[in-house]
């Protein structure tokens, strides 16, 4: 038996909206740790890794590990039927072939349940090693979205160059070229406290800062990499999940674009770089 209840149903709705255009079908892994997913886009250039920890749910029960194969477009259709302030409960039997989504409004006087057929999905799982990245950039997720959107009207790819003091986004196309440089904000402007949690990752609380780009750079080595803007723009659909985005880059490695989901986990996107021949 798997049962997971999330008070803030809008989180699940936003997560689905952020990944449904990138990945068609995916296996959700339900374990005692939480509700997780790893899936690549059809061209195997990008990957999404989602983790919603069991501790972040209002109620969570998972008697044994269950894999639920879902078509994300269909899942999104069902979740769109939930209001933003609804509580959402997902339920599945161990051997069942359906998942039930139950929506409850705040007054608890409207209760809906939707059953969706599960699918058998043959997917490849990638082993992603823990890596020390050469550059880590934290910036406003809105600003990152804005930059990716603006540059994609000029060119198809973006070159991201991170130095100690700035991160520079460059593109060029038929009509010309564009450079956007965001300077690192002085230390302490990015107010946050990190609390190490027992499993995977860290919990970061950010307090809203009043102005500026709030760019925080942690650099071992300057890095310059080029990526297809189409994918980055797709990742930016997760912008509403978190005020900040974290980019991790290392020479000749896929970039990791992470949005934290408050008190629950994260959605991470990996994108393979373009390499000059």
């Amino acid at each position: 038996m798997f049962e997971a209840r999330i008070l803030q149903g809008s989180i699940l709705k936003k997560v689905l909206e952020s990944i449904k255009d990138l990945v068609t079908d995916a296996n959700f892994e339900c374990t005692a740790n939480g509700f997780a997913l790893q899936a690549m886009d059809s061209s195997h250039v990008s990957l999404v890794a989602l983790m919603l920890r069991s501790t972040g749910f209002d109620h969570y029960r998972c008697d044994r590990d269950v894999t639920m194969g879902m078509n994300l477009l269909n899942m999104s259709k069902m979740l769109k039927c939930a209001d933003n302030d609804d509580t959402i409960t997902m339920k599945a039997d161990d051997a069942g072939d359906v998942v039930t989504f139950m929506f409850e409004n705040p007054k608890a006087d409207k209760i809906s349940d939707f059953q969706m057929k599960l699918m058998d999905i043959d997917t490849e799982h990638l082993g992603i090693p823990d890596t020390e990245y050469e550059a880590t950039v934290k910036m406003s997720s809105n600003e990152f979205q804005r930059i990716c959107r603006d540059l994609s009207s000029i060119g198809d790819t973006v070159t991201i160059a991170v130095t100690k003091d700035s991160v520079k986004f460059t593109t060029s196309g038929d009509i010309g070229e564009a450079n956007i440089t965001c300077r690192r904000t002085s230390d302490g402007d990015m107010k946050e406290e990190k609390v190490k949690t027992e499993e995977d990752g860290e919990k970061v609380h950010n307090t809203k800062s009043s102005e500026g780009q709030n760019v925080d750079i942690d650099l071992q080595e300057p890095v310059t990499l080029t990526f297809a803007l189409r994918y980055l723009n797709s990742f930016c659909k997760a912008t509403s999940l978190c005020e900040n985005v974290r980019l991790q880059l290392s020479k000749e490695l896929p970039v990791v674009v992470q949005y934290l989901i408050e008190d629950m986990g994260y959605v991470r996107f990996y994108l393979a770089p373009k390499i000059e021949e």
Binding site: I128, P273, K274
Partner: peptide, 14 residues
């Protein structure tokens, strides 16, 4: 702008 790599050239399948 260069040749697009796939993730499989960086990460192995498990």
């Amino acid at each position: 702008g260069g040749r697009q790599k796939t993730l499989k050239s960086f990460f192995s399948t498990t």
